[in-house]
């Protein structure tokens, strides 16, 4: 039995032990009060650290945090939708025989996460923010090396989940948040720990094999693509639709010179506080990819 088989057994056992009914996992209040309760850790809001954030009163900050939470859950839904499609495609595939038992749990757990995220967004936010990653074209995987597609799939999942997990972990411990927000983030963090362990193992194995058999030019293209994916994944946390829904243009009119939703998006993205936050929250993920030599150590975000 190799190390992947042992990991699959261990993760399957853990998933079975912690199996739960998602429809009984949380109690959904009839309504929530976005302006008087925190739904996102304020320090994790995209505008936190900017002058614009400081100019908002606490009610406006909470309103923004609520829409940021709906955006965070929305991008989880989009990420998990792509993830579930990729997992389903690989079930009992020619290169996934030993991992298929765990892929069933992975799929089941991702589906349950999406139930929680989707219910929150639909019930309280009345929307799911659309994904700007509208087309999935041009992945640099060679037909001669189908394992490249597997590596890219699991590497993208890992990037997405590592970032998300930093948010989940922080919010699962934040006593200022509404208990519902804490519960959803806590559930996700616990189950993601298994998915991340699996993803790291698969990515390391696939990349190690690829380094021996994939041409250097193809490996470079994969690295370049992954770097771009990392950047795009972070971009989604800075959504102009959120600023519009939170009414920031009105709230900041006359106090911040550039306050339309796209100007706020640029402000938030480029602000040194945001750059530092992204760097800190990406550290674990970047370290892993640097360790397996799949991404350069220094990567601007």
């Amino acid at each position: 039995m190799d190390s992947l088989d042992r990991l699959v057994d261990k993760l399957c056992e853990s998933s079975r032990r912690n199996f739960h009914n998602v429809y009984e996992y949380v109690t959904w209040p009839k309504a929530v009060e976005p302006e008087s309760q925190w739904f996102m850790t304020p320090e994790l809001c995209s505008l936190h650290g900017t002058e614009a954030w400081d100019l908002l009163d606490e009610r406006a900050q909470k309103r923004l945090a609520f829409h940021e939470a709906v955006n965070f859950f929305s991008l989880n839904i989009h990420g998990e939708s792509a993830l579930m499609q990729g997992l389903a495609l690989r079930l009992y595939g020619p290169r996934s025989r030993t991992m298929s038992p765990y892929l069933h749990h992975f799929l089941d757990e991702e589906n349950k996460h999406s139930v929680l995220f989707g219910t929150f967004c639909e019930r309280y936010g009345k929307k799911i923010y659309p994904d700007r990653k509208v087309f999935a074209l041009g992945e640099p995987s060679s037909p001669e090396h189908p394992e490249q597609g597997d590596f890219l799939f699991f590497a993208k999942v890992l990037v997405f989940e590592e970032i998300v997990d930093r948010f989940n972990l922080a919010m699962s411990k934040d006593t200022r948040l509404h208990p519902l927000a804490v519960a959803i983030n806590h559930n996700h963090h616990i189950e993601e720990a298994r998915h991340l362990a699996f993803g790291r193992h698969i990515c390391a194995d696939l990349w190690a094999a690829g380094q021996r058999s994939w041409p250097e030019e193809e490996r470079r293209a994969i690295i370049e693509y992954l770097q771009r994916f990392f950047l795009v994944s972070w971009r989604e946390y800075y959504n102009p639709d959120v600023y519009r829904d939170a009414g920031l243009e009105t709230a900041l009119h006359g106090r911040v010179s550039k306050c339309n939703p796209w100007q706020l998006q640029s402000l938030a993205w480029e602000h040194p506080a945001s750059v530092a936050r992204r760097a800190a929250m990406s550290e674990k993920c970047k370290t892993f990819f640097a360790q397996i030599s799949a991404l350069p150590e220094v990567m601007a975000l």
Partner: peptide, 23 residues
């Protein structure tokens, strides 16, 4: 590439000061 499309969409939205119907 498809991974550049989100940035292009944001640029277009900011230039026309109006969201794009992504659906």
């Amino acid at each position: 590439t498809s991974l550049l499309v989100p940035d292009l969409l944001l640029l277009l939205e900011s230039l026309r000061q109006e969201p794009i119907d992504l659906a």
